[in-house]
Write a protein that binds this DNA or RNA. Structure first.
Lengths: 116, 116
DNA sequence: CGGTATCCGGGTAGATACTG
DNA sequence: CAGTATCTACCCGGATACCG
C-alpha cells in the first residue's frame, strides 16, 4: 500500500516533525476523516461515506487503514451479520483536533483577508 | 502551472476551510518554506537551497510562486548585478506560523507516544 | 455492510540543460 | 544569482467489478 510512508519519512534535519505531521494529516482525505471523528466521536464505515460524500470506497478504506496503522484511530469490529465496524480517535488522534480547528479558523480568516 | 489550485478548491461543505488550509500548506515543501521564513525573517533564493538542501531549483521556484500568488509571502527584487531576490512572510503568512509550531510539537509528541 | 482487486489517467516531482 | 525549459517516472486517486 503506497499510502504508508511511515518508513520513508525523509528526516534529515531538526525541522522534520512538521513534515511528519503533514504526512499524517496531509493528502486529500485524512484531515477530513479525523475532523469528522472529532465531531461525531464514533463513525461507521458507511456513515463516513454520507459525511464525506465525494470519497470513493477505495480511498476511504485506504486512508482509514493508514490512520489505524499510525495509531490515530481505532477500528472496532462487531462479529454480526451484516458486518458492523466502528471507527474512533485514539488519544494521539484527539490531540490533533485542536490543530485542525485552528486550521479551520485560519482558513476562514484567510478567505476574508485575501479578498479584501 | 498545475501547482495553482486556488481556483479549483473543492469546497462543497462547511468543513472546507481545513481543506483550503491543507491545500496551501500541504505538499512536500510549502510548510517547510514558510517555517524557514518564520525562523529567519528574510531569505534569499540560494539561501533556501542551503536551508532545504533536498529541494530542486524547479520545485523551489514553483512553490515560491504559489505562495506568493496566494499572498503568503512577498518577493522583493533588487535591480542589481548579480540579481538579488528576497522572500519574506506577509501578515497572512505570519498567522500560519503558530499552527506550524504546534504541528512541530505534536509531531515530537507523536514520535514519543507512538514508540512507547 | 464493509470491504478487495484491478485497471487507468493526470499531475507531482526529479534530472538535466540552458539563460538574462 | 536566480531563475526557465523540457523530458520523464512515478504514484495518487478515480472508476469499476467482485466478495465474505
Amino acid at each position: 500500500m503506497p499510502e504508508d510512508r511511515s518508513n520513508k519519512v525523509s528526516c534529515n534535519n531538526y525541522r522534520c516533525e512538521i513534515e511528519l505531521t503533514l504526512e499524517i494529516i496531509g493528502g486529500k482525505w485524512k484531515a477530513l476523516i479525523l475532523w469528522e471523528l472529532g465531531n461525531h466521536g464514533v463513525i461507521r464505515f458507511n456513515e463516513f461515506q454520507r459525511y464525506i460524500t465525494e470519497i470513493s470506497q477505495k480511498m476511504l478504506t485506504q486512508q482509514l487503514r493508514y490512520l489505524e496503522k499510525n495509531k490515530l484511530i481505532t477500528r472496532k469490529i462487531y462479529p454480526v451479520v451484516p458486518p458492523m465496524v466502528e471507527y474512533s480517535l485514539t488519544e494521539l488522534g484527539k490531540k490533533l483536533i485542536p490543530i485542525l480547528k485552528e486550521m479551520d479558523v485560519w482558513g476562514k480568516d484567510y478567505i476574508f483577508e485575501r479578498d479584501k
